[in-house]
Amino acid sequence: MAKRSTAGGPPASHAIEHLADIVNADQPLVHRGRFIDLQWLWQIGEVPYFISIQRGMILELVRGPVLMRSHVFAIRGAQESWERFWVPMPRPGFHDLFAMTKSGRASIDGNLQPLMANLRYFKEVLAAPRKLAEDGHHG
């Protein structure tokens, strides 16, 4: 059985634990991100995660806080919002990054140029934990 949070999607700790495996195994996704080489921050509730991308692969994922660690841009939201976002068939308002930013459930800050230049890539990384909710996948 796939692990589920009360919000429906995989628990955040489980999602983050498997994020690199899911992304790095997705060949078209890695190829799409082949020009990306940066560190960004994904804030899930109170916990910041520093994610290093090199040529489309997640090279390192560090649970924060880490003193004086820099990042190019950050995407932030409440833990429950992300756990709703990761449901394979999310409800309206939890189905897209910008649905969440418009409603105030998520926010984006920092230098947005690399995010916008690779928007499909990063949206697919954010959504990658949806695959965990399918039975038998990293269950």
Partner: peptide, 9 residues
Amino acid sequence: EVCAAMISG
């Protein structure tokens, strides 16, 4: 690319 990625959701 960015137009499509903005409205994909």
